[in-house]
Design a binder for these strands. Structure first.
Lengths: 151, 151
DNA sequence: CCCATATCATTAGTACGCTAATTATAAGCC
DNA sequence: GGCTTATAATTAGCGTACTAATGATATGGG
């Protein structure tokens, strides 16, 4: 097979895998009234509570404006609370409600279970090598963007 | 490193790579008044003209309802035309306009160039291996969904 | 021929994602 | 202290994604 065909095939496989995983995860949590983005936010907040919105947005690689709406709905659903920071009156800290804590636990269970099932008999060394390759590719794309900005 | 950590790391790398590529590609085509989904549609239509909307939606793995809006805007931008099918009065066939053809060519150029730059010195066998693994994972996730539906 | 069923495109409504512009506050500098 | 600049959250507006419901047409069975 030609080099370019291999590359195209790889790109297609990458896109497909990524979307499949997201969709499957989404299906499993929507049954509990969640969505994939909310689940990601809950997961992160459970690990590191009381983040400012900007900080959470950075960690989830979302824009602040996107974060605002997401948190609006999570607040409506009783998953989180916005609390004013004492040090900086511009900042609002995000805290999980008890309900949010429960849902975060659920999210972790679903994720762990899915991970185990999907990677059941995947070789550890293969996984390690491919993770490295993916990281290389990601870095290469980031470089491209930088050059693109320079121009 | 523990098995579960490796798996998590792989998932993160996968998600990140996929998003980076999509974003980078998007940046390059928006300069020409396109978007990533429109570029994908143009690409597919250039390869296989006069598809019905449902067929195009299937190939791009989008819902028909999503396709409608996307094509609405592509029609407004003069990229495509909807033509009634002669065989089936429910069906509308999608044809590229001359402008659409031009843009499709541009899309292909951008994609080819990006592909070459990103994969410049990636080993062919590595790529093959990763593609296989990704396909395995995709299949595994698909199986999970089926079982989930059964339950 | 007719009716039940299926399929195509569409609309309505919701949820994300982005950029750009606004408002409130903070921080640095003369 | 007052002015410039930077940062936090928000709003507004767009584009894309989904599901559910609709209306028009096809299709197969009796």
């Amino acid at each position: 097979m030609k080099r370019s065909e291999l590359q195209s095939e790889f790109l297609e496989a990458l896109t497909k895998a990524s979307r499949k995983i997201r969709t499957a995860f989404n299906q499993r949590v929507t049954a509990h009234g969640l969505t994939y983005p909310r689940a990601r936010a809950l997961w992160r907040l459970a690990e590191k509570p009381d983040m400012a919105q900007a900080e959470l947005a950075f960690e989830l690689e979302l824009e602040q404006a996107t974060m605002v709406r997401l948190l609006d709905r999570m607040e409506e659903n009783g998953l989180i609370e916005r609390r004013p920071s004492l040090n900086d009156r511009r900042v609002k800290l995000i805290a999980l409600t008890p309900h949010g804590e429960e849902q975060a636990t659920l999210v972790r269970c679903v994720a762990d279970q899915m991970r185990q099932e999907v990677f059941a008999d995947i070789d550890k060394d293969d996984l390690r090598g491919l993770t490295l390759l993916l990281q290389t590719i990601t870095g290469r794309v980031a470089d491209l963007e930088d050059h693109h900005v320079d121009a």
